Amino acid sequence: MDARKEGLPLKIIFSDQHPQVRRWLVPFILACSLYFLLWIPDDQPSWVSALVKCLPILCLVVFLWAVAPGGSYSRLLQGALVCSAVGDACLIWPEAFVYGMAAFSAAHLFYLWAFGLSPLKPGLLLVTILTSLIYYSFLVPHLEPDMVLPVLAYGLILTSMLWRSLVWGGSASWGGVVFTVSDGVLAWNTFVYSFPFARLLTMTTYYVAQLLLTLSALRDPGLKTH
């Protein structure tokens, strides 16, 4: 896949040329609104709270099926979204945190597969690695010994996804950056210091990131416009 084929500009995606896009985004917006309106407390894990949390991501799976079907890129994004939904459900229960990381690792591998490895852009890789090393140098000392390897393995996969999303460009690059910020806030709040509004910031950036990554599939040809 050609990394130069960036997604359509957002102002074109949401223009009158593409009413199908706006129509199929309504379920995602409503599902996000439901999550924030209900705001089920973290200390009340249940399958209902898991479903409410996963619903926006599942809506994006349907969105791709309706608006950008058939292409390998869209199918890989759908795979990433399904794995993300599994990860969301796991993170509802603290004891399933590692399983959640594994599911999100699989999601990032799907994104990596979608973005491809050409062109390499080693300079951009170096910047992302250095940035990640700075962050993890502060995070790792706060981890329990049995969490160091899983967290570092996840961080390596996330950093790789960020690198390839930046090379791919368009909304994918913004999605990769925002996803990394979301995960960074979540990890800091979980392992280092619990701060007010961390969950609100984590989930807001998370849903925005997944939306931006999803919108990267909207390239002509293949975009249903009516």
Rank of each mutant, 00 (worst) to 15 (best):
L109S: 03
T159M: 13
I157H: 03
S165E: 06
L143D: 09
L130C: 13
L156G: 02
M147R: 14
F110G: 03
I134T: 09
P141L: 04
T128K: 03
H108R: 06
L139C: 01
M147N: 13
L125T: 11
W113S: 13
T128Q: 02
P145F: 07
S160D: 06
G155E: 03
G123T: 12
L139H: 10
G123E: 02
L124W: 10
L158H: 09
T131Q: 09
P119I: 02
M147K: 08
K121S: 02
S165R: 01
S137D: 06
P141H: 01
T131Y: 08
L149I: 09
W113C: 03
V127S: 01
S118T: 11
S137A: 15
L152H: 02
L112M: 13
L126H: 06
L152T: 11
L109D: 04
S132N: 09
T128G: 10
Y135F: 15
L112E: 12
A106W: 14
Y136G: 05
L109G: 09
L149R: 08
L139A: 07
T131I: 10
S160Y: 03
Y154N: 10
S160F: 11
W163Q: 02
L143A: 11
E144S: 15
A107M: 11
L117T: 15
S160C: 11
F138E: 06
Y111M: 10
L156W: 04
V148S: 01
F138I: 08
S132L: 00
L130W: 12
L166A: 04
R164M: 07
L125F: 14
